Computed example of a mutant assay.
Amino acid sequence: MEDKVLIVEGTNDRKRVRRVLAEPVDIICTYGTLSDEKLESLILPIEDKDVYILVDADEAGDRLRKQLKHELPNATHLYTQKGYGQVETTPIDYLTHLLRGYFNVKEVI
C-alpha cells in the first residue's frame, strides 16, 4: 500500500501524471465535484497518508481545491500554470519539474 496519494480530477489527468511518476502512487480521480458521501469515502481511507492535490487551473478546479483544502487541511497543493489550463494538457517536462520535489519521477528524454 502506498503512503502517498495524489488527487486529480479525471482519468486523462491520471494517465498524464502516471507517464511522469517513477514510483507507485495511489492516484484518485474526483471526476469533478464531490458530494458529502463521496468526500467521506474518499477522505477517511487517506487521512493518515501524504496527500497531494493537482487539479486544473480553471473555475471547476478552484472550487474542487477549495473543497479539498477544507476536508484535507494538511494536503500539499500542486499547481499547473494557468496558461496550460488542464493537468492533461500540461507539458510532460513541466509536470516532471512540478512533481520532482514530491515524488520520484522519470527523467525527461
Rank of each mutant, 00 (worst) to 15 (best):
A60P: 06
N74V: 00
H77F: 14
D48A: 10
D13N: 11
E2H: 02
P73I: 11
Y52G: 03
E23A: 03
E59Q: 15
R19K: 15
I27Y: 05
V25W: 06
G10Q: 04
R63D: 15
T89M: 05
L99E: 14
V105Y: 08
R19T: 10
D3E: 15
V105C: 12
L72D: 10
Y84E: 07
I53Y: 06
L78Q: 01
K38V: 02
N104C: 02
D3F: 02
P45Q: 10
P91R: 05
D93Y: 08
R19C: 12
L78Y: 09
P45E: 08
Y94E: 06
Q67S: 09
L64K: 02
V25H: 07
N12Q: 14
N74Y: 06
R65F: 03
A75Q: 07
L42V: 03
L72Y: 03
Q67E: 12
I46W: 06
H77D: 09
L68S: 05
S35R: 01
T89D: 09
D58R: 05
E88D: 12
C29K: 06
G32S: 04
V55S: 15
V17H: 08
I92P: 04
E47C: 03
L6N: 06
V25D: 03
T30M: 07
K4L: 00
V105K: 13
R16Q: 13
L98K: 04
D48H: 09
P45S: 10
R16N: 09
G61N: 08
T80K: 01
